[in-house]
């Protein structure tokens, strides 16, 4: 149904594709980023509220 509606609206399939691609990109990048961070950087930033 969703596909049909999007098709009948003309060329708006790119929106669904963009959403899907960005959806994965956001999760992938943020997950990769947090895994690859060095411990000292994470420790430093996480202590920011305690250092004021």
């Amino acid at each position: 149904m969703f596909k049909y509606i999007l098709q009948s609206a003309g060329d708006i399939n790119w929106m669904a594709m963009l959403a899907l691609v960005l959806f994965f990109a956001i999760f992938l990048f943020s997950t990769v980023w947090v895994i690859t961070r060095k411990k000292d950087y994470v420790d430093k930033v996480s202590r920011l509220p305690l250092d004021d």
Partner: peptide, 18 residues
């Protein structure tokens, strides 16, 4: 004491708002 996992907070942020 600092937040349990700063890494989790970042995934939490992006996932939640999306």
């Amino acid at each position: 004491r600092p937040v349990f996992s700063y890494r989790l907070s970042i995934v939490h942020f992006w996932a939640l708002i999306f």
